[in-house]
Design a protein around this nucleic acid. Structure first.
Lengths: 246, 246
DNA sequence: CAGTGGTCTAGACCACTGA
DNA sequence: CAGTGGTCTAGACCACTGA
């Protein structure tokens, strides 16, 4: 069977599933403006009789729409079309090695240092440590086809990754290693535009005033801070892209 | 009843729901490393007998974990712990007016122009128009407590919002207006760091070399392009923040 | 073949809202 | 009170995988 036929088979099977048909019907009405924001949508029992399916099937369609943020449901009142205003999109922060490989390019890393330091007073609270405690600190520059793409300045809580300093980061990225030893469970990040430090600018081979995309990311598991990273990208060489489509 | 008691009631009711208990059990095991990435998780029937619930209940818990990206399910094989690597987080691009108001600050906008222009060859394909077709073009600077926060350079497809030029954008933001007339159904964006144009720098009151966070967003509904916006923020005054927590 | 997930049904009890 | 959503059960048929 040709691939195209197989694909359309799978597709039509999925579309033909009753819950998917109900969901598609409601989604179509939402995007066409049939139910503007805050409008009352058909009740479960109306959909049950309209589509001739059981209530569980209708419930599944509505619950999925709710989890996608397209409708709001209130017990005792009904289902309402949501405001689509807060456009939320999935921003994926991928391992840089994979990202570069996916573009079909070569990645390599230069480790400027990876050592133990005493934790400074500034850092201690963000890493759940006490000032003076040992902390691991690495500074690595990542290259895409020999062009510096990212300067990764990272602190690691030794309790979470005791072997961190023994890893060969020309072979594995810190992100990749840390995901293996400590399942990533929570992360906060801030994205901003700014200047690199003098040291970063030198390592990246850019001017002191060249704009950079800077991501600061803090990773926590079960309230135990794992790592704090500052990722600096030359503005002209890096962009974050995303898409929103319910 | 004191609020705290009510809250814990609601919470414990939700936690006591059988599907939520199964889900919490699996989530706990995933975050603790009991099932590392690619590990085979308990089958539906195992969970059914272990928790003494019906299969539909177990299925719901597993399906929600799957939609959260925590497990992968393959028919005929089983359920596997997912790689948590691609940290995906919900990035919300909110209406700037609401965002500033939420911080308890004052927002105001200065409209530098809002007019009709012939569509350039560069723009035409991205807006689904032909070169020379009329297109709406507005340039607005947004202020937070009288400090310029964003320069919004926007093109709008006249077919989607014929009244665009009659709107008073000192009272309503273009984002807000467009969400009302055209339900936002799809958006692509790119975030990067760069320099403002000479005009933008002048309007924002920044230096030509000051780094800026630049977001380019294209909005589409049913394959009809609605609007293309370039949002320039002085780097020192704006950041995007987000969180990941399954 | 036995075991897996994908989906559905027809019924049930409940909590909640507003009239 | 009638109507809404929140959740569950016990059973069913199916497609798929690997032995």
């Amino acid at each position: 069977m040709p691939p195209s036929a197989a694909a359309s088979d799978a597709e039509s099977r999925a579309t033909r599933a009753p819950y998917a048909r109900v969901k598609a019907f409601l989604k179509q009405g939402l995007s066409s403006g049939r139910w503007p924001p805050d409008a009352l949508m058909p009740s479960e029992s109306e959909l049950v009789s309209q589509f001739g399916v059981s209530r569980m099937t209708v419930t599944r369609a509505l619950r999925e729409l709710q989890s996608e943020g397209l409708v709001t449901r209130v017990q005792g009142l009904g289902t309402y079309a949501a405001h689509l205003a807060p456009v939320s999109s999935t921003l994926t922060i991928r391992d840089l090695h994979d990202e570069i490989a996916a573009r079909g390019h070569r990645h390599h890393a230069v480790v400027h240092f990876a050592r133990e330091e005493p934790c400074t007073a500034m850092l201690a609270p963000r890493l759940g440590l006490t000032t003076g405690d040992p902390v691991f600190h690495s500074l690595i520059v990542h290259y895409e086809n020999d062009i510096a793409l990212q300067c990764e300045d990272r602190y690691v809580n030794p309790a979470c990754a005791p072997d961190y300093l023994t890893v060969d980061f020309t072979q594995t990225t810190p992100t990749h290693y840390l995901l293996e030893v400590a399942p990533l469970w929570e992360a906060q990040y801030a994205i901003e535009s700014g200047n690199a430090t003098a040291q970063e600018a030198r390592l990246l081979g850019i001017g002191a005033r060249d704009p950079c995309l800077i991501i600061v990311r803090r990773t926590v598991n079960h309230n135990v801070p794992i790592t704090l990273a500052r990722l600096v990208h030359p503005g002209a060489r890096y962009r974050l892209e995303g898409q929103f489509s319910p």
